[in-house]
Write a protein that binds this DNA or RNA. Structure first.
Lengths: 344, 344
DNA sequence: TTGTATGCGTTATCAC
DNA sequence: GTGATAACGCATACAA
């Protein structure tokens, strides 16, 4: 004997209409504060029916009808990277404001995987795509065909036919290195990335700019993986140099964290023996030892701008928004005791 | 003059059928390696048409028809917490294996927000819900009504009517503290969480278990926010104690990172003056200074189990899977120089 | 103010 | 092996 008639079928707007003694259209009007008005009394009845039945609109049907899914896709290389974690969080909360959900995906730095993910997201009918691409020139033909708005994240400059956001990598880097120069350093090395992307290049250029402007020679450069391990190994290399730099500029927090480890292992003191400034300024940089002075990227602002740019929906127009990364002074640059000579 | 006839309307299966000179059904059969066979020749023609037209199946329509969206929801308190970041990444990659996308959301430790997020996810027709709840007893009536499989993450024990996964919080904590005892510590404090959830309680109990078994008094306990700041403040408190502990067990990596900062500021040496073991064992714990000895949660395994449990789809049955957290020995416990007295 | 009816792109059942 | 065609649940133009 079956206990209950097995109401496996989810309740639909038809059930609600029946229960409330109205038509399905009216239910729609109520649910969507619809295009038509509803008499207060009827509205109440419908609302009650909805509550009674536990009705929940079917998003798939809605998406099909309307042609919009209310979902956007976010592709980063690694959501475990504190910078992207911060970014993802900001994107999520900004998207929630306009009732959008976010599908998060990791490309693991693989261009082919990234491409697959984008394809997948497109077929999921996402209303927009936020892409922190591994490549300088991602293949987004399919997104364009599908008329899906795309905003490129973490970009150094405009990309023909797309909206994009990013910080002033070059100037910010120059500022960071200038700060080290103000501290009196004359041998300033750099830990850079393995990939030759524009954001990497611009940060290298900014470092070189500052050095050149001060008439200083370029310190040693080590290119390493963007992760903590990369920074660690780069640090070991730099520290074992015969003519070791007295300051190091690191292109990411993660690398700086790795660097810090090699530094501690070598018994080198920061900032006394070696000053460090990193890029990103994520939460992790604040709690390293010593806390890292860093160029902080205004992640929340950028996320907001990205979502807005998505909303404009206009595909095909080139529009890059540059944000200013700002110097967050903590201990690793040496701004503690002998901070006399500093301006600003 | 309009250049091209403005093909704004996306390509549908009907277009493909037309282009290939077949019926829409056949297109379906081809796309889905359908329930029916198609002649190799026809199949080729369809495939060509798909390529030519750049056809992409409409996921919304598919979801509506099939009643499954191919999307699962993941709710954590903060994807910025390295533990959850790791977890989310593992979930994403595990979900991708069976072609599921993941909507990631942050509850920010708010029970009401968490509830709203769950509601939202349900109406998005997610095929499953992975929930690392803020509360011991989350309200999931609506999920149950909607017959959406739910797996509770980061749980200490079974929850009536739900699948769940988690580690052996209590035993793992006992092990951690026993390790400190092996190192000869007799005053072992604890940094615990603010919320009184079961996972917190069990970790506290494990700490007490180990102490009791060794005939040791309970060291000081400080309850603090689960973030880095909480650990920092807790650390300052503990360090200023007249009878300061020689070892501290921290309930999370983030707290331990914060603790480390307070320790460094106070000029206390780890592990010489103060040994530390933390919980989680995320990447961040490996690159702190000193690197943290930690009970590592097998995040990848748990993610896999969670996705599998989701797949079984049976709602309503109670089923808790416990995983073993394992001790990862690094520097902070003192396992460096004087590591003689250690077993295992 | 409310009801009727149509179509969104798919899948799958039925005929052929 | 292939072609019609009926839902899936919703939003809305149109009729009443």
């Amino acid at each position: 004997m079956k206990p209950t008639p097995e109401r496996r079928r989810p309740v639909t707007r038809g059930d609600v209409a029946l229960h409330a003694g109205v038509s399905t259209a009216v239910v729609s009007y109520v649910v969507n504060a619809g295009p038509r008005n509803v008499a207060p009394a009827t509205r109440e009845r419908v609302l009650d029916a909805i509550r009674d039945l536990g009705y929940r609109p079917n998003a798939a049907a809605r998406a099909l009808k309307l042609g919009v899914s209310g979902i956007i896709g976010l592709v980063v290389s690694d959501n475990t990277n504190p910078f992207f974690a911060d970014y993802a969080r900001a994107v999520e909360s900004e998207a929630a404001v306009i009732d959008l959900s976010v599908i998060l995906t990791n490309s693991a730095l693989s261009a082919t995987l990234e491409h697959q993910l984008v394809q997948k997201l497109i077929s999921r009918q996402v209303d927009g795509l936020l892409l922190a691409s591994t490549e300088d020139d991602p293949d987004l033909a399919s997104a364009r065909e599908a008329h899906i708005p795309v905003v490129l994240l973490d970009r150094a400059g405009p990309e023909e036919g797309f909206s994009s956001v990013g910080v002033n990598f070059r100037e910010a880097s120059r500022l960071a290195v200038e700060h080290l120069i103000l501290h009196g350093h004359r041998k300033i090395g750099i830990i850079s990335g393995l990939t030759g992307g524009a954001t990497t290049r611009d940060r290298e250029l900014g470092w070189a700019d500052a050095l050149a402007a001060a008439g200083l020679p370029e310190g040693p450069m080590v290119r390493a993986d963007f992760g903590r391990i990369g920074g660690y190994e780069a640090g070991r290399q730099l520290l074992s140099l015969p003519d070791r730099p007295t300051a190091i500029y690191s292109l990411s927090d993660m690398q700086a964290i790795g660097l810090l480890r090699s530094v501690h292992e070598a018994g080198v003191r920061v900032p006394e023996d070696l000053a460090v400034i990193s890029f990103d300024g994520s939460a992790e940089s604040e709690y390293s030892w010593p806390p890292l002075t860093a160029m902080r990227q205004p992640v929340a602002d950028m996320a907001k701008a990205a979502i807005e740019a998505l909303g404009h929906g206009v595909t095909g127009i080139t529009n890059h928004q540059t944000f200013r990364a700002e110097l967050v002074v903590r201990r690793s640059c040496g701004c503690d005791a002998p901070a006399r000579e500093l301006s600003e």
